[in-house]
């Protein structure tokens, strides 16, 4: 169980948070203009990396804010945490 440094609350146990999948997948502004394949790309395709992964987390049992985490999935080492809307760091 790792520790996550919530950008709003500070360091808390992982059990207070929930993972929300890959980060920076933007919902298309005009879904109706997309082909099935383009929509499927948004809807279904997710990376599952062994190594550095950019993902979304929410502080469910805390401030309930969503934010982004850069995590090494092989050892849970957290490289960076930044708020929604902020630019991803270069790692």
């Amino acid at each position: 169980m790792f520790i996550i440094n919530c950008p709003y609350c500070g360091e808390r146990e992982q059990s207070e948070f929930k993972a929300g999948g890959e980060a920076h997948i933007i919902r298309p502004k005009q879904p109706t203009e997309l082909s099935d394949d383009q929509w499927a790309e948004y809807l279904f395709m997710r990376k599952n990396i062994k190594g550095i992964q950019f993902e979304r987390w929410v502080h469910t049992h805390g401030c309930r804010k969503w934010f982004n985490v850069v995590r090494d999935t092989s050892n849970d080492d957290i490289k960076a945490i930044y708020k929604m809307g902020e630019k991803p760091p270069i790692i």
């Binding site: 933007i26 929410v58 969503w66 809307g85």
Partner: peptide, 13 residues
């Protein structure tokens, strides 16, 4: 509630 908050915070801030 969680889903609505997610959309509000991340897609439609």
């Amino acid at each position: 509630l969680g889903k609505l908050e997610d959309y509000l915070q991340t897609e439609w801030p």
